[in-house]
Design a protein around this nucleic acid. Structure first.
Length: 605
RNA sequence: GGUCGCAUAGCUCAGCUGGAUAGAGCACCUGCCUUCUAAGCAGGCGGUCCCAGGUUCGAAUCCUGGUGCGAUCACCA
């Protein structure tokens, strides 16, 4: 064979893709067969090798026995590919040993990259808007919102890292009967309380009156049943406080100046409160959308759709869409009195966003209880003829439940977002105090560190779980700080940073040629190699959990390495230089991966 | 009842487009801090991958049926 040795190109293409090409040409040479596909997997730890070709699937195209086929392909690859230094065949698995040089090249490559694993968005990159949070303005944010917020924020970051342009937004549910309930209760029982007077966060204050409303409402219902002897159903409808709230909503829709002024005042309190919570969580938005702004546009669009025949009007004047051909029901899009429903304003909001931003896709981070709603919404937008309707995605996540069941704001059975974050920070403080490793840190620095760790624990705890699974949160068993946790990963980062501070300028020294990799070093390099594809996978699946699990595996691998070999006390200078640099790369990837999750990392802990 | 989702160790979770003996953490047990941070490492214990069929060289993974849990099927959001 006259063809010279071929070399693999680290960084240009994944090892797997390159080997796939090599195997295909091997099979072409050896058997004159065009292979359709190849299947690789990482070699299991119990066998020698770095990557394994599964030969079984090839038997369909090549008549042979698996062991013989493996041997022949292995021989060919060893002779023709420079970096394949050895191989062995076990049953139908061809285990390939990749030469150190390949991994060292890869390492040199990523060292020079500013943002290893991340793809900068091309000028023609897809623009995607991620909606998350979508709060009602009658109550504070709770643990359920936290999952929503963390997921949405992280997915937006991941999409950006995967080469898209992404924008973050929220829809604020600022109108409707819920806010009128808080307003009415405040009017009746509030005695002019304000956030300033009480020292309460605005959202908390308004939330208290929402609860107050519900208490009064229940009281009135039972009184009605007792005194008038009417049914519970009738009592629920007739309760004076509810009737009055409904009247208030009508006044609001009619633009009654007094009601609108109260509405604006109380909503502003809530926005100020939300802002503090968002800041504490560490998330932001490129744009806010308000239901009170977009529901009118939705109504316009429905009327246009009516003319186009997408919708139809019933005798009572209500407007519907028939989705029975798609296996769904008929769905209301406008009430008989002409007022908007949830669907109406979501149609309007979607269209407004595409007008406002350079986007052709959207991700809605909303709980799985609304799966049906979004199925319908996407279908409607498609029927209305918007081509971007094909790129809408409902990031549907499981509910966060308590051991006692669902969280209910009205009944006060919620885990408050602000309280929870404060508790996590306090736990971080207690643990840090016990360990006592922070001498030399000012109170200010310590406080900041507790915040980073506490928040890291909470965020990781929530994000490491597959979004579609429901989470059972037990407040009694506090979130862990050991094992597969945020603080564990942060701790590993801090340890590396500590080494790097001591190592000085070793980082810039070149890696010596012909360096013989330690087994653990090689494992780390293999894990680092997976970072870019992990980001892509996480983006495709809208799953921060994939990033979390990846970083955890990397950190496990590093700690094992750290324990087994000495970095600063290595036997040779070459080893010391390489290990310091390797540790530095691991730290960079930990930081980078955690940034995609919205989690910060500390210099010490 | 229709539709959708979930079911893996005592508990919390991984398991990529089907691949070798199903992996982590917590809990429990045993070792390791006079050498870079023990929020760590090494090891032990622990499995009917919900059940039954099917597809195939091979199934936790795909298909069918069933069971359990959750959600949804509003002129609520």
């Amino acid at each position: 064979m006259s063809r010279g040795l071929r070399f693999l190109k680290p960084g240009k293409m994944s090892l797997q893709n390159q080997l796939s090409e090599a195997v295909k040409s091997a099979v072409k040479q050896l058997y004159n067969v065009e292979l359709e596909s190849t299947e690789f997997q990482p070699t299991r730890k119990d066998f020698e090798g770095d990557i394994t070709l599964v030969v079984f699937p090839m038997l369909k195209q090549i008549k042979s026995n698996p062991a013989k086929l493996g041997e022949e392909i292995g021989n060919y690859l060893k002779e023709n590919i420079a970096e394949i230094s050895d191989f062995n065949v076990v049953k139908g698995f061809l285990n390939l040993v990749i030469a150190d040089a390949y991994f060292l090249n890869f390492f040199t490559e990523i060292k020079q990259q500013e943002n290893f694993g991340l793809i900068p968005p091309a000028t023609n990159a897809r623009g995607i808007m991620v909606e998350y949070s979508s709060p009602n303005t009658n109550k504070p944010l709770h643990l359920g919102h936290i999952r929503n917020i963390l997921l949405g924020y992280s997915v937006a970051e991941i999409l950006k890292a995967a080469g898209n342009k992404s924008y973050k937004t929220q829809i604020i549910n600022d109108r409707g009967i819920h806010i009128c309930k808080s307003m009415l209760a405040w009017q009746r029982f509030g005695n002019g309380e304000t956030p300033e007077i009480t020292g309460l966060k605005g959202d908390k204050l308004v939330g208290n009156y929402y609860v107050k409303f519900d208490q009064e409402y229940k009281k009135e219902i039972s009184e009605l049943i007792e005194q008038k002897g009417i049914s519970e159903e009738a009592a629920k409808a007739e309760a004076p406080i509810l009737v009055e709230a409904k009247q208030m909503l009508l006044k609001w829709e009619a633009g009654d100046p007094e009601v609108v002024a109260l509405w604006e005042k109380m909503n502003q309190w809530v926005y100020d409160g939300f802002e503090k919570t968002y800041e504490a969580i560490g998330v932001d938005f490129d744009e806010n959308y308000y239901e009170s702004d977009t529901y009118l546009l939705g109504k316009d669009v429905v009327n246009q759709g009516l003319e186009k025949g997408v919708f139809y009007k019933k005798e009572d004047g209500s407007v519907w869409i028939d989705l029975s051909d798609e296996g769904l029901d008929e769905k209301l899009v406008l009430r008989s009195d002409g007022t908007a429903v949830y669907m109406t304003q979501d149609i309007g909001t979607a269209i407004q966003r595409v007008k406002d931003f350079d986007i052709n896709g959207m991700v809605y981070t909303v709980g799985n209880e609304q799966d049906y709603h979004f199925k319908v919404l996407f279908l409607i937008l498609k029927k209305l003829g918007f081509d971007w309707a094909d790129y809408l995605y409902h990031l549907s996540y499981g509910m966060v439940d308590l051991p006692s069941g669902k969280m209910k704001s009205r009944e006060g059975t919620v885990v408050d977002a602000d309280d929870l974050m404060a508790e996590m920070t306090d736990t971080a403080r207690k643990i840090s105090a016990e360990l006592g490793k922070l001498e030399g840190y000012s109170e200010e620095e310590k406080k900041e560190l507790y915040r980073i760790i506490g928040l890291g624990a909470l965020k990781y705890y929530i994000l490491k779980v597959d979004p579609k699974k429901r989470i059972l949160f037990n407040p009694e068993e506090s979130v862990d700080f050991q094992g597969n946790t945020g603080p564990f990963i942060q701790y590993t980062y801090a340890r590396i940073r500590s080494i790097l501070r001591k190592a000085g300028d070793i980082y810039n020294k070149p890696v010596s040629v012909g360096y013989k990799l330690h087994l653990k070093e090689k494992e780390l390099l293999k894990q680092l190699q997976l970072y870019p594809e992990t980001i892509q996978l996480a983006a495709e699946n809208h799953s921060p959990a994939l990033i979390a699990n990846y970083v955890y595996d990397l950190v496990k691998e590093f700690n094992s390495f750290y324990q087994q070999v000495s970095i600063l006390g290595a036997d040779t200078e070459a080893e010391k230089h390489f290990r310091v640099q390797l540790a530095a790369e691991v730290a960079r990837v930990i930081k980078s991966g955690f940034k995609l999750l919205g989690i910060e990392v500390p210099e010490r802990m």
